[in-house]
Write a protein that binds this DNA or RNA. Structure first.
Length: 259
DNA sequence: AAGATTCTCAACCGCGGCACA
DNA sequence: GTGTGCCGCGGTTGAGAATCT
Protein backbone atom coordinates (compact mmCIF):
# COMPACT_ATOMS: atom_id res chain seq x y z
CA UNK A 1 0.00 0.00 0.00
CA UNK A 2 1.46 3.30 -1.11
CA UNK A 3 0.11 6.52 0.19
CA UNK A 4 0.17 9.81 -1.52
CA UNK A 5 2.86 11.95 0.02
CA UNK A 6 1.55 14.50 2.48
CA UNK A 7 4.54 16.40 3.76
CA UNK A 8 7.43 14.60 2.21
CA UNK A 9 7.57 16.94 -0.73
CA UNK A 10 8.24 19.73 1.71
CA UNK A 11 11.12 17.78 3.17
CA UNK A 12 9.11 17.19 6.30
CA UNK A 13 9.42 14.13 8.43
CA UNK A 14 6.61 11.66 9.02
CA UNK A 15 6.14 8.49 10.99
CA UNK A 16 6.81 7.85 14.65
CA UNK A 17 7.89 10.75 16.79
CA UNK A 18 11.27 10.77 18.50
CA UNK A 19 11.48 11.75 22.18
CA UNK A 20 13.47 14.84 21.19
CA UNK A 21 10.70 15.94 18.86
CA UNK A 22 8.14 15.41 21.59
CA UNK A 23 10.18 17.54 23.95
CA UNK A 24 10.51 20.34 21.42
CA UNK A 25 6.77 20.32 20.82
CA UNK A 26 5.94 20.26 24.52
CA UNK A 27 8.36 23.05 25.29
CA UNK A 28 7.05 25.20 22.49
CA UNK A 29 3.40 24.78 23.37
CA UNK A 30 4.05 25.37 27.04
CA UNK A 31 5.72 28.64 26.15
CA UNK A 32 3.62 29.87 23.28
CA UNK A 33 0.49 27.78 23.07
CA UNK A 34 -0.70 26.45 19.77
CA UNK A 35 -2.56 29.24 18.09
CA UNK A 36 -1.67 28.28 14.57
CA UNK A 37 -0.81 24.67 13.97
CA UNK A 38 0.39 25.30 10.47
CA UNK A 39 2.93 27.83 11.58
CA UNK A 40 3.90 26.02 14.74
CA UNK A 41 6.40 23.47 13.43
CA UNK A 42 8.44 26.10 11.65
CA UNK A 43 8.45 28.38 14.67
CA UNK A 44 9.28 25.51 16.99
CA UNK A 45 11.99 24.17 14.71
CA UNK A 46 10.30 20.89 13.94
CA UNK A 47 10.49 19.18 10.57
CA UNK A 48 6.87 18.16 10.75
CA UNK A 49 3.68 19.44 9.24
CA UNK A 50 1.21 21.23 11.45
CA UNK A 51 -1.25 18.45 11.17
CA UNK A 52 1.22 15.94 12.49
CA UNK A 53 2.07 18.24 15.40
CA UNK A 54 -1.57 18.75 16.27
CA UNK A 55 -2.23 15.04 16.19
CA UNK A 56 0.79 14.25 18.33
CA UNK A 57 -0.21 16.86 20.85
CA UNK A 58 -3.90 16.09 21.07
CA UNK A 59 -3.53 12.33 21.07
CA UNK A 60 -0.40 11.81 23.07
CA UNK A 61 1.42 14.74 24.62
CA UNK A 62 -1.37 16.78 26.13
CA UNK A 63 -0.85 16.89 29.90
CA UNK A 64 -4.45 16.05 30.71
CA UNK A 65 -4.42 12.78 28.85
CA UNK A 66 -5.17 9.77 30.98
CA UNK A 67 -2.80 6.95 30.12
CA UNK A 68 -3.36 3.30 30.71
CA UNK A 69 -6.12 0.81 30.14
CA UNK A 70 -9.72 1.75 30.01
CA UNK A 71 -11.71 0.90 33.09
CA UNK A 72 -14.82 -1.19 32.84
CA UNK A 73 -16.86 1.91 33.59
CA UNK A 74 -15.23 3.79 30.75
CA UNK A 75 -15.85 0.93 28.39
CA UNK A 76 -19.47 0.75 29.39
CA UNK A 77 -19.81 4.46 28.90
CA UNK A 78 -18.35 4.19 25.42
CA UNK A 79 -20.71 1.39 24.54
CA UNK A 80 -23.72 3.33 25.72
CA UNK A 81 -22.65 6.51 24.02
CA UNK A 82 -21.88 4.67 20.83
CA UNK A 83 -25.40 3.30 20.85
CA UNK A 84 -26.66 6.85 20.91
CA UNK A 85 -24.10 8.76 18.91
CA UNK A 86 -22.70 6.25 16.50
CA UNK A 87 -19.14 6.74 15.30
CA UNK A 88 -18.92 10.27 16.56
CA UNK A 89 -15.73 9.61 18.42
CA UNK A 90 -14.98 13.18 19.30
CA UNK A 91 -18.42 13.58 20.83
CA UNK A 92 -17.87 10.43 22.82
CA UNK A 93 -14.40 11.58 23.85
CA UNK A 94 -15.85 14.84 25.08
CA UNK A 95 -17.71 12.89 27.70
CA UNK A 96 -14.69 10.91 28.82
CA UNK A 97 -12.20 13.27 30.40
CA UNK A 98 -8.61 12.45 29.56
CA UNK A 99 -9.44 10.16 26.69
CA UNK A 100 -8.95 11.04 23.05
CA UNK A 101 -11.18 10.29 20.13
CA UNK A 102 -8.39 8.27 18.57
CA UNK A 103 -7.98 6.18 21.68
CA UNK A 104 -11.70 5.59 21.95
CA UNK A 105 -11.91 4.66 18.32
CA UNK A 106 -9.12 2.16 18.80
CA UNK A 107 -10.59 0.59 21.89
CA UNK A 108 -13.92 0.31 20.15
CA UNK A 109 -12.51 -1.52 17.18
CA UNK A 110 -10.18 -3.73 19.18
CA UNK A 111 -12.21 -4.59 22.28
CA UNK A 112 -15.71 -3.32 22.54
CA UNK A 113 -17.11 -4.54 19.26
CA UNK A 114 -16.04 -8.03 20.24
CA UNK A 115 -17.45 -7.60 23.70
CA UNK A 116 -20.79 -6.55 22.32
CA UNK A 117 -20.77 -9.42 19.92
CA UNK A 118 -20.19 -11.83 22.77
CA UNK A 119 -22.84 -10.20 24.89
CA UNK A 120 -25.52 -9.99 22.31
CA UNK A 121 -24.66 -12.67 19.86
CA UNK A 122 -24.34 -11.98 16.19
CA UNK A 123 -27.98 -11.09 15.81
CA UNK A 124 -29.82 -9.14 18.45
CA UNK A 125 -33.14 -10.41 17.24
CA UNK A 126 -31.96 -13.91 17.67
CA UNK A 127 -30.13 -13.39 20.88
CA UNK A 128 -28.91 -16.33 22.88
CA UNK A 129 -28.18 -15.67 26.52
CA UNK A 130 -24.58 -16.21 27.51
CA UNK A 131 -25.55 -17.13 31.02
CA UNK A 132 -29.00 -18.64 31.27
CA UNK A 133 -29.27 -17.78 34.94
CA UNK A 134 -28.82 -14.14 34.07
CA UNK A 135 -31.54 -14.33 31.52
CA UNK A 136 -33.93 -15.70 34.05
CA UNK A 137 -32.97 -12.79 36.24
CA UNK A 138 -33.58 -10.41 33.36
CA UNK A 139 -37.03 -11.77 32.81
CA UNK A 140 -37.96 -11.30 36.42
CA UNK A 141 -36.51 -7.92 37.08
CA UNK A 142 -38.01 -4.57 36.21
CA UNK A 143 -36.34 -1.76 34.38
CA UNK A 144 -35.98 1.36 36.44
CA UNK A 145 -35.13 4.78 35.12
CA UNK A 146 -33.39 7.22 37.41
CA UNK A 147 -32.92 10.93 37.48
CA UNK A 148 -29.45 12.16 36.60
CA UNK A 149 -29.49 14.43 39.61
CA UNK A 150 -28.49 11.68 41.91
CA UNK A 151 -27.75 8.46 40.17
CA UNK A 152 -27.69 5.38 42.30
CA UNK A 153 -24.33 4.83 43.90
CA UNK A 154 -24.74 1.33 45.15
CA UNK A 155 -26.65 -1.80 44.49
CA UNK A 156 -28.95 -0.97 47.35
CA UNK A 157 -29.90 2.23 45.54
CA UNK A 158 -30.73 0.29 42.45
CA UNK A 159 -33.66 -1.39 43.96
CA UNK A 160 -36.78 -2.19 42.11
CA UNK A 161 -38.73 0.92 41.74
CA UNK A 162 -42.09 0.26 43.26
CA UNK A 163 -40.75 0.80 46.72
CA UNK A 164 -38.26 3.41 45.81
CA UNK A 165 -39.04 6.55 47.70
CA UNK A 166 -35.90 8.34 46.65
CA UNK A 167 -36.99 11.82 45.66
CA UNK A 168 -34.43 11.87 42.89
CA UNK A 169 -36.14 9.04 41.15
CA UNK A 170 -38.60 10.86 39.03
CA UNK A 171 -40.19 7.89 37.50
CA UNK A 172 -41.28 4.99 39.49
CA UNK A 173 -42.78 3.16 36.64
CA UNK A 174 -41.76 -0.42 36.82
CA UNK A 175 -41.47 -2.29 33.62
CA UNK A 176 -40.60 -5.82 33.01
CA UNK A 177 -38.34 -6.41 30.11
CA UNK A 178 -41.22 -7.86 28.25
CA UNK A 179 -43.17 -4.67 28.47
CA UNK A 180 -40.99 -1.64 28.09
CA UNK A 181 -43.24 -0.16 25.51
CA UNK A 182 -45.66 0.95 28.18
CA UNK A 183 -44.48 4.01 30.03
CA UNK A 184 -46.41 5.83 32.67
CA UNK A 185 -48.19 8.88 31.29
CA UNK A 186 -46.53 11.11 33.82
CA UNK A 187 -43.17 9.90 32.84
CA UNK A 188 -42.27 12.38 30.17
CA UNK A 189 -43.64 15.34 32.07
CA UNK A 190 -41.42 14.30 34.92
CA UNK A 191 -38.60 14.03 32.46
CA UNK A 192 -39.26 17.54 31.29
CA UNK A 193 -39.25 18.85 34.82
CA UNK A 194 -35.82 17.36 35.25
CA UNK A 195 -34.49 18.83 32.07
CA UNK A 196 -33.06 21.84 33.79
CA UNK A 197 -30.89 19.64 35.89
CA UNK A 198 -27.39 21.01 36.14
CA UNK A 199 -26.04 17.60 35.27
CA UNK A 200 -25.79 17.12 31.59
CA UNK A 201 -27.08 13.79 30.50
CA UNK A 202 -24.40 11.30 29.87
CA UNK A 203 -27.03 8.87 28.86
CA UNK A 204 -30.28 9.71 27.37
CA UNK A 205 -33.16 7.45 26.98
CA UNK A 206 -33.57 7.21 23.30
CA UNK A 207 -37.25 7.43 23.62
CA UNK A 208 -39.96 8.86 21.48
CA UNK A 209 -43.43 8.00 20.41
CA UNK A 210 -41.78 5.72 17.95
CA UNK A 211 -40.24 3.72 20.71
CA UNK A 212 -43.02 4.11 23.19
CA UNK A 213 -46.17 4.43 21.16
CA UNK A 214 -48.35 5.18 24.13
CA UNK A 215 -46.24 8.11 25.27
CA UNK A 216 -45.86 11.61 23.93
CA UNK A 217 -42.60 12.30 22.06
CA UNK A 218 -40.06 13.56 24.52
CA UNK A 219 -37.81 16.47 23.66
CA UNK A 220 -34.40 15.06 24.51
CA UNK A 221 -35.01 13.75 27.97
CA UNK A 222 -31.99 13.91 30.21
CA UNK A 223 -31.62 10.70 32.04
CA UNK A 224 -29.25 8.26 33.47
CA UNK A 225 -30.40 4.79 32.82
CA UNK A 226 -29.94 1.61 34.71
CA UNK A 227 -32.02 -1.40 35.08
CA UNK A 228 -33.34 -2.90 38.19
CA UNK A 229 -30.59 -5.28 39.07
CA UNK A 230 -27.40 -3.47 38.25
CA UNK A 231 -24.86 -3.48 41.02
CA UNK A 232 -23.98 0.08 40.21
CA UNK A 233 -24.68 2.69 37.60
CA UNK A 234 -22.18 1.40 35.14
CA UNK A 235 -22.69 -2.25 35.67
CA UNK A 236 -22.10 -3.66 32.24
CA UNK A 237 -24.73 -6.32 32.28
CA UNK A 238 -27.27 -3.98 33.69
CA UNK A 239 -26.69 -1.27 31.14
CA UNK A 240 -26.23 -3.63 28.28
CA UNK A 241 -29.47 -5.36 29.00
CA UNK A 242 -31.27 -2.11 29.31
CA UNK A 243 -29.98 -0.75 26.08
CA UNK A 244 -30.55 -4.04 24.43
CA UNK A 245 -34.19 -3.75 25.21
CA UNK A 246 -34.51 -0.25 23.90
CA UNK A 247 -32.57 -0.69 20.77
CA UNK A 248 -33.73 -4.08 19.85
CA UNK A 249 -37.25 -2.83 19.83
CA UNK A 250 -36.14 0.15 17.82
CA UNK A 251 -34.43 -1.98 15.24
CA UNK A 252 -37.17 -1.69 12.71
CA UNK A 253 -37.22 2.06 12.85
CA UNK A 254 -35.69 3.91 9.91
CA UNK A 255 -33.30 5.89 12.05
CA UNK A 256 -32.53 6.92 15.58
CA UNK A 257 -33.46 10.39 16.71
CA UNK A 258 -30.80 13.08 16.47
CA UNK A 259 -29.34 14.50 19.64
C1' DA B 1 12.46 -22.58 18.57
C1' DA B 2 10.66 -20.53 14.68
C1' DG B 3 7.51 -19.07 11.45
C1' DA B 4 2.68 -17.61 10.84
C1' DT B 5 -1.07 -15.19 12.33
C1' DT B 6 -3.52 -11.89 14.99
C1' DC B 7 -3.78 -7.85 17.76
C1' DT B 8 -2.76 -3.16 19.16
C1' DC B 9 -2.42 1.57 18.63
C1' DA B 10 0.12 5.66 16.92
C1' DA B 11 -0.02 8.03 12.92
C1' DC B 12 -1.58 9.17 8.40
C1' DC B 13 -4.95 10.65 4.72
C1' DG B 14 -8.83 12.82 2.75
C1' DC B 15 -12.80 15.26 3.36
C1' DG B 16 -16.05 18.60 5.18
C1' DG B 17 -16.94 22.68 7.78
C1' DC B 18 -15.85 27.17 9.08
C1' DA B 19 -13.89 31.80 8.85
C1' DC B 20 -12.34 35.33 6.27
C1' DA B 21 -11.05 38.18 2.31
C1' DG C 1 -21.22 34.03 -4.29
C1' DT C 2 -16.46 32.32 -4.64
C1' DG C 3 -11.79 31.11 -3.42
C1' DT C 4 -8.44 30.09 0.01
C1' DG C 5 -6.51 28.51 4.24
C1' DC C 6 -6.93 26.17 8.41
C1' DC C 7 -8.78 22.93 11.65
C1' DG C 8 -10.97 18.82 13.28
C1' DC C 9 -13.06 14.49 12.39
C1' DG C 10 -13.52 9.70 10.99
C1' DG C 11 -11.65 5.94 8.36
C1' DT C 12 -7.67 3.46 7.52
C1' DT C 13 -2.96 1.79 7.62
C1' DG C 14 1.09 -0.66 8.99
C1' DA C 15 5.01 -1.56 12.24
C1' DG C 16 5.85 -3.85 16.23
C1' DA C 17 4.19 -6.84 19.91
C1' DA C 18 1.80 -10.76 21.37
C1' DT C 19 -0.05 -15.10 20.63
C1' DC C 20 -0.69 -19.31 18.22
C1' DT C 21 0.68 -23.48 15.67
Amino acid sequence: MVRAPCCEKMGLKKGPWAPEEDQILINYIQLHGHGNWRALPKQAGLLRCGKSCRLRWTNYLRPDIKRGNFTREEEDTIINLHEMLGNRWSAIAARLPGRTDNEIKNVWHTHLKKRLKHSHGSNANNRQPIDPSKDIKREQQPVTIYSPVSPPQSSSDVSTSENNSNSNTFTTKTETNEDVSEIDENFWSEVLSAENSSMAADFRVVGSDQYFPSSPPPPLPALETVNGYGSNLYDTDANMDFWYILFTRAADLPELPEF
